[in-house]
Design a protein around this nucleic acid. Sequence first.
RNA 1: GUGAGAGUAGCUCAGCUGGUUAGAGCACUGGAUUGUGGAUCCAGGGGUCGCGGGUUCGAAUCCCGUCUUUCACCCCA
Length: 432
Amino acid sequence: MKIPPVKGTRDFYPPDMARRNWLTDGWKKISLRNGFEEYDGPIFEYLKMFQVKSGDEIAEQLFSLTDRGGRELAIRPEITPTLARMVNQQINSLPKPIKWFSVPRLCRAERPQKGRLREFFQWNIDIIGSDDLLADAEVIFCTIDYLQNIGLTPKDIVVKISSRKMLAAVLQTIGVEKKELDPLYALLDKQSKLPQDTFEKLLAEKVADKTQYKKILELMTVKSIEQIKTLTEQNKTAKESVDELERVFELLNVMGVADFCSFDISIIRGLAYYTGTVFEIYDKASQLRAIGGGGRYDNLLKDFGGPAISAVGMGMGDCVLAILLEEKGILPEQLPQPKSDYFIAYANQKYLQKAVEITAKLRLAGFITNFNYKFSNIGKQLKQASNQNAAKCVIVGDEFEKNELVVKNMSTGEQKLIDYDKFISDIGTKSK
RNA sequence: GUGAGAGUAGCUCAGCUGGUUAGAGCACUGGAUUGUGGAUCCAGGGGUCGCGGGUUCGAAUCCCGUCUUUCACCCCA
């Protein structure tokens, strides 16, 4: 019986696994150098956990199960609720700000399409317990640090940044009621995906007041923060939020990553819990869906039964990123060759035993070492050695009668006779 | 949930206006080469042409259904 792989999942054959590791190792390396510590949680949680901040529609896109004790569980579709739970549990003993990162494997029962699968990996970084704009800037910097590190430039990607707080304040000065904000966000967020006339039509349906409608439309065309200052009569919150956003850009400039960043009023993010800075990373051509995104959220911990502590975070999935890197020719280049240190060849079946012994000694000393189970001629064994990218090949042959081995450097082709005892005593230990 | 395209060897695909035994490249195995690799040449293994039904003397090829997959919509934490 042939059982196919499950829809929306991937098999990672060794070359794929090498790429995946290259990607996730990069996430980890950059997180650490930006001062984040790694955490992880269980791959499943109570179903309820994922229903707290989102409705039933999202619950339909969960892989859920009932365990034998009747508990309703779900495989995690995101790690933020777990993070909130973990932080809440130890909130009083953790030094602030908490800077944590994770690379969880997540599952969502959505229909797969380009850049979206049912199982994927997502890099998450969060700074909890600081409302300083430095935290906002640091999260964005860390994100760019990674993207830049793997070879992407401002020609390839752009981080579009805006502020929920500012948008809310400005919309309110225009006259939009607070309770109308969320449904309006949903529409404004789609502006870039819709043809302009469709967008205008939908907006007109949503906003009955003609003056309001015009002002919103005008607001959504602004290209700089400067324009917003002059666009509306200022109220205190609006002014404050504009200053804050400018401060974030100033910090990003100081950090030397301003080339990657641009203000974009249409960045709102679907999620209701964002309260301040919001940002999304896109490929420059905007051909792909967002590579990642994040922002400041003030109520998340509280929603999970903790204190009202401000936080800012970012999430980036592996699917879209991999597509972009593939297109840019970065991923294939980076594919690490499986590399071994030694290949032990034997010229005659009677030396097999010795070859096994040498292999074991080298392995115990930390060297990646291989040999062939089945005897074949030296040419074949050398071919195998080069296929395995062995740095050196040791040949156990008739020289061994004189207590000698042939050690061949596989890249130069150079080979020499080495006394067996000397070879063994010189093995040393490979630094790990 | 809605719509469109695609399923032929391990992979990428050709063959498709029906016609004998279904092909190529890459990969794999063996040989040329019984002690010297990466190259080259030769040979070999590997297929229920996604599955089921229909039309036909004859179906990989045409028709219907079904499954899978890709892409788009919805959604996007």
